[in-house]
Amino acid sequence: MHNAPPVIYPVGRFVWGVPCIGALALTGAVGLLCWQAASGAEGLTVWGAWALWALSSTLAVSLEARESSAQGHLGWCGDGWSWRDAHMQERVVRLSLLLDGGRYMWVSYRMADAFETHNTWPRIAIVRQTDMPLAWHGFRCAVYSRPLGNGMTSDQTQWPMII
């Protein structure tokens, strides 16, 4: 049985996250204004609706910063996935595919040391073919591959060279 080749793929922050949340919050505010004008609602109902809108908008912005991926690299070496951050520190991760759009993928990954603690949420990354077109096929193959299970530890994994 063949396995995917070793691959390193860059992952960066989703720069459209906050603008998308802002557009949704603005749409919600316009909807609230239209509802308020059309229904003639007053007093505590209106204040409650605006408080709920403010709370949900603030929560969405704060969660976006926590849930988005930092800049780094996802690496596949045949026996599993690793995350290498901007400071070149490597950690073993568990990767899950959320959506495959052909030229882009939404993946989530969770640090291996968080498996036991259950206090770290998975990170979400949008990976696009345009970020590294020559490695795209290898990355897609790696996402769908199973680890070889040859007993290597994360300290023994070898990252391929980035050219």
Rank of each mutant, 00 (worst) to 15 (best):
R66C: 04
V93G: 03
A54I: 02
V61M: 13
A29W: 07
E42F: 02
R103Y: 07
D113T: 10
D85W: 07
T27F: 15
Q71G: 09
L24N: 08
W83D: 04
L52T: 07
Q89S: 02
E67R: 05
G17E: 11
L52E: 00
R110T: 11
V30I: 12
S68P: 00
R91H: 14
W35P: 01
G22R: 10
W35S: 02
R91T: 15
V46L: 08
V15I: 13
R66W: 09
L32R: 09
G80T: 06
Y104A: 02
V15D: 13
E42Q: 12
G78A: 05
V92H: 06
S39C: 07
S68A: 11
H87Y: 13
G72C: 05
G101Y: 06
A38S: 13
Q36I: 05
V18S: 09
A25L: 10
L44I: 08
S57P: 03
G17K: 06
V7Y: 02
V18Q: 07
I21D: 05
E64G: 03
W50E: 05
A51F: 08
G28D: 08
V11I: 13
V11N: 01
L99E: 11
C20I: 15
L63H: 01
A29P: 03
S62A: 15
V18F: 10
L98W: 07
